[in-house]
């Protein structure tokens, strides 16, 4: 309940404030968002499995975001930023798909 409200509050805040994305953050924000999405779907799946732990969620959320950003940063420094961010997106996308598949099985038994 509160979790859903939190998501709503974040979206509304973003819509109302309309902040400019700082230039240094611009290449990393999309990757970070996808990484956070992966953490959220992983947490939902764990919750449905009955093994959810809020500490684990916080740690996985933060580390997901940081590692994704770090990989892209490293890629930029090595001159392969574009390719690495594509790779990160692909991996995270696969994980999101498998998590969502598990969630679907829990909720719809299908």
């Amino acid at each position: 309940m509160i979790a859903g409200l939190g998501l709503l509050v974040g979206v509304i805040l973003g819509l109302m404030l309309q902040p400019e994305v700082p230039l240094w953050l611009e290449p990393y924000l999309p990757i970070a968002v996808v990484a956070a999405l992966d953490a959220v779907f992983g947490a939902l799946r764990a919750f449905l499995d009955g093994i959810f732990d809020d500490k684990v969620f916080v740690v996985s959320f933060v580390s997901n975001v940081l590692i994704a950003a770090l990989i892209v940063y490293l890629g930029d420094k090595l001159g392969v930023g574009g390719q690495l961010s594509t790779g990160v997106i692909v991996v995270l996308g696969i994980r999101i798909f498998s998590n969502v598949a598990a969630i679907r099985r829990h909720i719809f038994h299908a």
Binding site: A3, G6, L8, V9, G10, V11, L13, G14, P19, V33
Partner: peptide, 14 residues
């Protein structure tokens, strides 16, 4: 969870 989801929502919208 709510706080983190708020961050996620904010970041996605931005």
């Amino acid at each position: 969870v709510a706080a983190l989801l708020a961050v996620l929502g904010f970041a996605s919208v931005v």
